[in-house]
Structure formats: C-alpha cells, structure tokens
Write a protein that binds this DNA or RNA. Structure first.
Lengths: 229, 229
DNA sequence: CCAATAGTGTCTGTGAGACAGTATGAG
DNA sequence: CTCATACTGTCTCACAGACACTATTGG
C-alpha cells in the first residue's frame, strides 16, 4: 500500500456487560477466567476482535457473548472505551465496553474455554474477585442503564417476548432501585405506541394480567421527561 | 509474559469532531489532508494513539487537536466507535470518535503536517470532499450535540468564560436549529446553580446584558426534561 | 366470602411554552 | 424621544406522582 510507520499498537479488546433481572434482582453475566491474566477471577465476557470474521465491533461483542455464554442479547449498545497503559498486565490496552440486556435464562457454558459463566447479583460483586478494571466498567454500565431506564423502555429487553405490566414494573424497580407508579408506566406504554396488546393474559395471584409485546420493527422511543426523582 | 497468539490487530485511530458556533452558525473544525489516503480531502483532526505518550485516548484526542489546530477544547466527550474492514483503504480500521466544543477563535495551522485547518459551516459540508466516513461521524456528533443541548448546558462551552444569556440563546438556536424561549433558559440557569453572576455587563445594542460564568468546579447538570419538541 | 394483583379516575405539582409588559442602554 | 435588546410576571399545558377506587382472578 504505502509507507506507514507501524508504530506500536495497543491491545484492543471488546467486553460486554450483559444484564438481566431475575427475582427482582439485577444480575450481570460473568465468566470465571480459565486463562492467564487474572486466572480464577471473574471477568466480563469479551476478547479480541477477529478482523477476518467480525464485520464490526458489535459483531465481536455478539460473537464473544455467544461463544462464552451461549446467549444472544436482545439489546446491545456501546458503552465506553477505557484505555491506559496499566489496566492490562500484558501492555497498553484499549477496551471497548458494551452493555446488553436479555431475558433471564440459564447459562450452560457450552464452550470449554471458559470454566463457568453465570449470573451474579450486582449487589454481591464487592465480595468477589473481579479481573482487570471490570468492576469499574460494570459500575459505569449500571449507571447508564439506570439513567436510560428513566427515559426509555429498554427494560423490556430484560423480559421475554410477551410480558405483563407487573413484570415490567419489577424489572424497572430492580434497575433503578426505587418504586415507580404503575400508572406512569402505563401512560408511557400507551404514549410510546411501541407495544401491542397480546391476546393472552397471564395469571399472577390475582386478576389476570394483560400481556404486551413489542411491535415488530418498532424503534425505541425516548421520552422527554425522566421518571421519578 | 505468556503465549498469546498475536492475531492481526486492526488499525486503531482517534478522531475528534470539534464544534463551535460563530455568527449564529454551527461550525466544525476540519483539516485538509496532506497525506496519502484521501489526500486533498477534508478530514477530522485525529490520528494514531501513541502509547508512549498518551495516558489514555482522551489524551490522544487532545494531543491531536493541539498539534493539528492549536486548539484546546473546553469540552470533550467520547462519541462512538466506528469499525469495519472497508472504511480505511489501509485495512480493517477501528476509530474512536470524540466530539468537542470550544469558543470560536481563529485557527492558525501552526503545524506543518497539515496544509490547513479551518472552521467549516456544517451546512456547507455536502458541497465538500470529505475523507473516509467522516461525514457520517460528523452527522452522529451533531445529533448527539443537539440531543444533549435539550437537557444540559453544554452549549456554554461554545462561548468564552463570561457570556450573556443573549449569546447563549444564539448558540443554542444554532445548534438545535429552532428558536427557544429566553425565559426557559433563564429558569434553567437559575435552577442549575452552575453559574455565577459576574460583576460585568456587556453592551449589545440595547439594555446592557448581565454576564455569567461557570462556577469553578461546578459539574454539568442534566435536567429531567427536554426543551422544545 | 377474602386476599391479591390488575387496571382506572382524577387531583396535585413541576417545569416548559407563550407572550405581554417593564427596564435600561445607545443614538 | 425611539429603537433594540434585556429581563419579569403570569397564564397555560403536558405529563409525572400520588392515591383512592373498581375489576377480576384464585382459594
């Protein structure tokens, strides 16, 4: 091609913070590291981009999630790039962090390269050994998720295709760690026009709950006000 | 260290979209490329990270802005990573784009490596030759700036230290391309508690305007509602 | 029947939009 | 004085919060 000084390149990795909510608790998917830096520590699923396979970094994130955990996220968005000379003992490192959401499902670590991938409660992370600065990345991801929950409907991606308002309330409250008004949520569901009323209802210990589902091809509306305070 | 297969790494670059507002027009800083890919096209100021110099990618962005344009931005924030095999003829490329704001000032291209850096009106970009996918990156940056202007005071970073409400209105209107209510803006300035009333006033063809300045150490408040519609 | 959860009606509160009215500078 | 721009007062409107009320299920 032409003369470019191939100056030293940093390590470039892609890591994902995959969240779900189960039993009213926010969980994050972590993998126990089987390999050298921070072996035995919990780390975010991620790795190096494969420029022969990955159309872009989104694909790297998805590929690594699938390989390491068998899961395909319902929602995936770039979070932030974290970089510096000291964050990886192997050298100067640049990590593109994603955050992602999925309905809760059991993780069978189908892949040998990882000892075990599993859902950890965000609240129990302080008790665990976390690799690199992944704890910090999770904090940033959690903040972003909380913020976005105040003005959008992304929490629906923590639920299955069809869901009830009651389920959605539980998910939102688990994310923002505050109670919300059912009424406000229903107004938003109505106003957003993102959802359609299913013909099914679900039993939940009282009156049957209407199930909703995302309209096919609907994009995610951002509201002009935040919830709560 | 240990055996890591050094699989092929992508090119990693950092580019910045530096905005300002001058005479009620949103401008972006572009440099005429003196070197090979897209020589003679307009490109965003940016380049490769220097892992021996840059503490992190923010520093890369700042260093490149300073080198290529002599400017130090008042505000700098990550925008997005864009990646893919085709966006740079030299190979698979990953770019971390930043967007930044600064008070308008003339650019003297102090550095020889760039033919000319100058402020281009965003509206005239369609008429010009833009390198790589930089046009697309600018579009994304502009959208983000518009969005953020609706719920924060970042446009003040397009103004000098001390500024009047009237100046700020002009900047905001240039960014979001819609008129706003002076009253709403004043309420926000009051409520945010980010600013202090200077002891100076500025003449502007009518009654003297009160000058404000950012309180030292004040952080940028996000409002819970958006402006306008 | 009761308990539990789903959903409605409606009042209050907050902050943006609109816009008329007042204040104060230059010429 | 007039004109231009700065600032204030105040009404309306949209939408979130609060909460009482009704509806519908299972036991």
């Amino acid at each position: 091609m032409n003369t470019i000084l191939q100056i030293e390149k940093p390590l470039f990795t892609v890591d994902s913070v995959l969240f779900t909510v189960h039993d009213g608790v926010l969980k994050v998917l972590m993998a126990k590291r089987a390999e050298s830096p921070f072996e035995g520590y919990w780390g975010l699923p991620g790795g190096f981009i494969d420029i022969n396979v990955d159309e872009n970094t989104d694909m790297t994130a998805r590929r690594k999630l699938l390989n390491k955990t068998g899961l395909v996220p319902s929602y995936l968005e770039q979070l932030q790039v974290i970089s510096g000379p000291k964050r990886d003992p192997r050298g100067y490192s640049v990590t593109l962090a994603y955050y992602a959401l999925v309905a809760h499902q059991n993780v069978e670590s189908k892949i040998a390269s990882v000892e075990s991938a599993c859902w950890l409660s965000v609240s129990e992370l302080p008790k665990l050994l976390i690799a690199f600065d992944h704890r910090h990345i999770i904090d940033i991801a959690q903040q972003r998720l909380q913020q976005k929950t105040l003005y959008s409907m992304i929490p629906v991606f923590c639920l299955p295709e069809k869901f009830s308002i009651g389920q959605l309330i539980k998910v939102i409250e688990a994310i923002i760690e505050k109670p919300i008004q059912r009424k406000s949520l229903m107004r938003r569901i109505e106003a957003s026009e993102m959802f359609e009323i299913s013909n099914e209802k679900i039993s939940s210990g009282g009156r049957l709950a209407q199930l909703y589902s995302l309209k096919p091809g609907a994009d995610i509306v951002n509201f002009e006000r935040n919830l709560s305070l």
